[in-house]
Design a protein around this nucleic acid. Sequence first.
DNA 1: TAATTAATGTGATATTTGTCATGTTATCTA
DNA 2: TAGATAACATGACAAATATCACATTAATTA
Lengths: 237, 237
Amino acid sequence: MKTLEKSTPCELCMSRKFSLFSNLSEPHLCHLSDHKNFITHKKGQILFYEGTKPLGVFCINDGVVKVFKTASNGKEQIIRLAKKGDFLGYASLLGEESYSNSATIVEDAKICFVPRESFIKVLGEDTEFHRRVTKALCHDLGIMEDKLTDATQKSIRERLAFTLLKLSETYGIDGNEGEKINIILTREEIAGLVGTATETVIRLLSEFKKDELIDFEGKKILVLDKRGLARLSDFYG
Amino acid sequence: MKTLEKSTPCELCMSRKFSLFSNLSEPHLCHLSDHKNFITHKKGQILFYEGTKPLGVFCINDGVVKVFKTASNGKEQIIRLAKKGDFLGYASLLGEESYSNSATIVEDAKICFVPRESFIKVLGEDTEFHRRVTKALCHDLGIMEDKLTDATQKSIRERLAFTLLKLSETYGIDGNEGEKINIILTREEIAGLVGTATETVIRLLSEFKKDELIDFEGKKILVLDKRGLARLSDFYG
DNA sequence: TAATTAATGTGATATTTGTCATGTTATCTA
DNA sequence: TAGATAACATGACAAATATCACATTAATTA
């Protein structure tokens, strides 16, 4: 048994509000609460590996998790960063396949694990929930199409600028000078997000800083000029 | 009303056997048959445009359809080629969003259109069918992750070699000298599939031909050396 | 069939980006 | 706190690929 801790019951979980579990019935919530497993994870820990069999779904209560594929050249392509309220591993579970990707903790996380049986049970009994899951999958598919198109048709500079904008959208907090991307990512991880080499990210970030589009505050990035980044990130502003 | 033609009822449709509709009950099949719309499409015609609202799903009885996104530089990124038995437009429909991509006919096609209401009705009444649709979506998601990773981490040469292998897997017919990819794609379309410039495809194809990996027969490509292409398509053979 | 348009092919060139080598700084850990 | 390791940084360089311009061939249409 791993880290035992007082785990919030699903009925009272705040992060549930933003999740696919948001509209579940009382009995279903209780069922999940009774069967889930609450675990605290430290940065760097591994949630699951590509190629292994999913035994349930993960529901992030707090923290950040990176979902990535390891390419044949050894580099990590980050598929997405998952945060509070996000689900992990449900696509592989419902696709009845092995994990198509791996997941590791980027920021200390509290994660609930809902075993396969409970998840499937709720899915089968609550049609509305199944519909929402399907809808989420469809949405994710659209996002992946966008990412693929960007990957093949845009330059690294454009993609990096776009990535910074997206990060500031999700993790940005206002400061006196620009918006701070309140998450620590290594240059290598940013490279994995963009799909490029680490050195290229380092060089482009310095360039962006020189052009006063961004600045650094410790290990975090300040977005100074969103409009400028937006202009850089696309052919059309 | 468009091209009226004798349309096979779903119960007797052969291409249904390979499709998501394969295991539907008799009444549901009849319901679909009664409400579907059978249309013959010529090469070049448009099925739907990105940004418009889906009114139902398309089910391909015969032919080939390309599903693509138009990037901001005007180039087409082909998401997938859909063939007999494949569904189109269900992700946007179920995601309750506008079409995330466009679709046009690559090879003369016979396509059934199932209106939204009928599809949703069957989905709601047949849980098993809903499960299969979900499973298909999850599978597609995994494929998109692979494509994204390939797009960012592999060279154009590798991706083109891989694309040819995939095409021969799907559209290949055995001949006396190698396998013929029995579908006509322009170099521009192959470029859209790979995610590169047309000229690059032309040059690389000539190179592949010079290296006796492929040959041309009219507008079609013969795959002479699968093993060679496989070696080219990945760092590991 | 002529005229037009689309598709294919080729050359020249510039640029972006990856790779390798190496150094510096920060962070972790024994 | 010293030593080890990871992260960041920079230069030099090669290679892959996009772009532009233009020529040729094939396909379509008037």
